[in-house]
Write a protein that binds this DNA or RNA. Structure first.
Lengths: 221, 221
DNA sequence: TTGACGTAAGAACGTACGTTCAGTATTTTT
DNA sequence: AAAAATACTGAACGTACGTTCTTACGTCAA
């Protein structure tokens, strides 16, 4: 049989599950425990079969060195897996580029800075296209529920309303702050009692300093 | 020093590199070989430091059970780190059902409660399937950066580690709290100085009370 | 009906691997 | 100047883990 047997499929699924859920592959004994196989050899038989059929790569004498290949990645007949997923309509998503360090003088989405791309359900994101993403450094906005490491989704625009959370280019780097225009200056206010606002004289302020408006925050926990 | 030392950063980078390149984390001796450390204890010191600073989770007595956390995932300036990142999978999405009010006695995903469905880029969501979403009510977790109205993504599971943010069914409603099991009771701790923890006697505690583990937070701004 | 294949038990073996203890030296903090 | 954190060496220990051998039972195709 060139396809997988039911048991082999279960082993493969468990390996994939372990990797997504725990971050590392299981041992032979962990597989055995899950499958109700008391002998490590029983498990090994399955792994050899998977390896022979090209669904798995292993390295000898290393613990947990199991690598499912991309072959046959379609989940089998498991009740959970293939609910009503469907072919993923493109229109429902916005493709957002996550940029790394943003520095003055360079276009925000300069290619070298795009470190990742994610797609976001349009329902979660006001602003349509024209949105880019970045990772938060530091905790100047901690009282606004924006923590270091969070992903921010930012709509590119050169103006903002008083009190909006904006991404601005101050000095040489991008920072996230509340935006408070005053008479003679623009005040960029951190949401952190221990930090002082940054003041930019109205004369020095240029619209190009505003990179955009924060429209979404995502955090992996 | 709360940030990472150069050596610690190198260890962390190597762990990440191993995971992306080989599919599984390294052993202490593999780290040692790469770093020029002949004693496994020298390596262990680094791992303990990374763990203490929150950059890494480990499980005792398991080989290769190293899990970099999302904290400080910004790749420094290292050439290696951020190149071979993602294999750019076409449309890897997790379909997440957003539930409304969760009450005791009803399955979490009972049809009447599903108020919305969104698709999330798998790269943003640890835990694969088995994830549902809900809206936050109240600000009991405000100091953890979780505000009223935020969307939480919750991985269904009946167990959790100390200090995890969990969704639990306490009394008749679902609440979000830190999870702290103690000797005689389980403490559900709010992240809000004005609120008291909820204590559930160990005798009264049932695994069904844990609905899951918070794996993501999203906020529309 | 012999043989190949899948599935598994059980035991023995060796090594891979994490843990711990006892030191040493340097740097950083207090 | 003392105390703490960092960064190791080296060795001993116990267990986690993969490998291999032997035996066994059922199914299916030639």
């Amino acid at each position: 049989m060139q396809g997988l047997t039911q048991r082999q499929q279960m082993v493969l699924d468990f390996i994939r599950e372990s990797i997504t859920d725990r971050g590392y592959p299981p041992t032979l004994r962990e597989i055995g425990a899950r499958m109700g196989i008391r002998s490590t050899n029983g498990v090994n038989d399955h792994l050899r079969a998977l390896e022979r059929k090209g669904y798995l790569k292993r390295e000898d004498m290393k613990s947990r060195a199991l690598r499912p290949t991309s072959t046959g990645e379609l989940p089998g007949g498991d009740a959970l897996a293939n609910l009503p997923s469907l072919p993923a309509n493109d229109d429902d998503f916005v493709e957002v580029q996550i940029v790394g360090r943003v520095a003055a003088g360079l276009p925000v989405l300069a290619e070298e800075h795009v470190i990742d791309t994610v797609k976001i359900d349009r329902g979660l994101l006001r602003g349509g296209r024209e949105v880019f993403g970045l990772r938060v450094q530091g905790d100047s906005m901690i009282d606004a529920g924006i923590l270091a490491g969070d992903y921010l989704f930012v709509k590119k625009q050169l103006t903002a309303s008083r009190g909006d959370i904006v991404v601005a280019l101050i000095g040489d780097e991008a920072t996230v702050k509340y935006y408070y225009p005053e008479k003679d200056y623009v005040r960029f206010q951190p949401a952190n009692k221990t930090m002082a606002p940054i003041l930019v004289r109205a004369a020095d302020f240029r619209p190009t300093m505003l990179l955009g408006l924060v429209v979404g925050v995502y955090r992996k926990v």
